Simulated assay, not measured.
Amino acid sequence: MVKVLLTGGSGFIAAHILEILLERGYDVVTTVRSEEKGQHILEAHPNVPKEKLSYVVIEDIGKDGVFDEVVKSDPPFDYVIHTASPFHYRFTDPVKEVLDPAIKGTTGILKAIQAFAPTVKRVVITSSFAAMARTDTLVKVYDESVWANVAWEESVGDNKGATYRGSKASLPLARRPPVTLAEKAAWDYVEKEKPSFDLTVINPPAVFGPIVHHISSLSDINTSNANILEAIQGKYKDGNMPRSIVFLWVDVRDVALAHVRAIEVAEAGGKRLFIVAGHFSAKRIADAIRETHPELESKLPENVIDDLPADVYQYNNTLGRQLLGIEYRTLKECIGDTVSSLIKLGA
């Protein structure tokens, strides 16, 4: 049976990837940051035998050599899906809490696979639209060819959005030894080292969708879903929902499927894939909540301003759609299912 290593298995996107992998019969080993998180994963899949699903604890993916023993599996791994990279704005030390885990975690797992897991055919890495979004020039249409322009100095400064973009993008250090950031570091490694495996990278924008991973409280909700939660809790009843900083979105289930299809479609090797469903705005989200959950009307803002610019940048998702066969969910379906999952969690 085909065996997959899935890093960061307790995360928002990874939990959906895990469900699809198990549904399709893959054997999966996932990494987690604690025994508690690992047990939550096993409890979420009580009918899956232990030989089909297990976990390994890695507390800090930014440490040198942490993946070396993990990839030495018997039976060996056929594929690796690397999703373990922080995405939040709650950090105090951008290098230690965001940049090192993202960059060193990515290069570290590639080095470990090359050294100790010769059977791995492909590595799929979760990147982000943050590795594409530019602030120095007007991009009319985003596609896989566009790279972000965030430099290391911005990433280690006070701009938390820039720190996340920096963890996903690539520019050289101006006053330190050259540093490549996470996604570009992966492509550079493959180009330079010519490993036995090939690489596929998935680049989604804002990711909404139902929550299937364990969270200890609603305060632990993933960043992209936070505004939806606050909207249905009535936080914006007397005002507008926060203005979007990204105007492109995708459903988490479609992102998860893209990761799995990326190991199943031979032609996906060596590709960077922009997985995006369309444009969204605060008003469109509020309208979707109203349509799917009219009982929440009293908690929603009455006159939401549509903050989608008339000249908003466009996108080209042709490569991902044609190569992986993704049929994207609508915003209404996505937001409706997201709200339903939040209500089940006590929102």
Results as ranks from 00 to 15, higher is better:
V2E: 07
K3V: 01
V4D: 06
L6G: 11
G8V: 00
H16I: 08
I17K: 13
L18H: 14
E23A: 13
T31V: 10
T31G: 08
V32H: 08
R33D: 02
H40D: 09
P46V: 03
V48G: 11
P49D: 11
K50V: 08
K50C: 08
L53R: 11
S54I: 06
I58V: 15
D64Q: 12
V66R: 09
D68N: 15
K72E: 03
I81L: 13
I81R: 13
T83D: 05
A84V: 05
P86V: 03
H88V: 02
P101R: 02
P101C: 02
G105C: 07
G105N: 00
T106I: 03
G108D: 05
A112L: 10
A112E: 07
I113D: 01
P118C: 01
P118R: 05
P118Q: 02
V120R: 09
V123E: 09
V123Y: 08
S128D: 09
A131I: 08
M132S: 09
L138C: 05
K140F: 02
Y142N: 06
W147M: 06
V150Y: 13
G157A: 14
G161N: 13
A162I: 00
G166K: 12
A169P: 12
A174M: 11
A174E: 14
L181Y: 08
K184S: 06
A186M: 01
D188C: 01
V190G: 00
S196V: 03
S196R: 08
P204H: 12
I211V: 15
N222S: 15
S224P: 10
A226T: 12
N227E: 07
I232P: 07
Y236D: 08
N240Y: 04
N240F: 03
P242R: 07
V246N: 12
W249M: 06
R253Q: 13
D254E: 15
A256T: 13
A258F: 15
R261E: 13
A262F: 13
I263S: 12
I263L: 14
V265H: 06
E267S: 05
V276E: 07
V276W: 00
G278P: 11
R284C: 02
A286F: 00
A288K: 11
E291R: 14
E291K: 15
E291Q: 13
E291M: 10
T292K: 14
T292Y: 06
E295V: 04
S298I: 04
P301S: 08
L308C: 12
G325V: 01
E327W: 00
E327V: 12
E333W: 04
D337S: 06
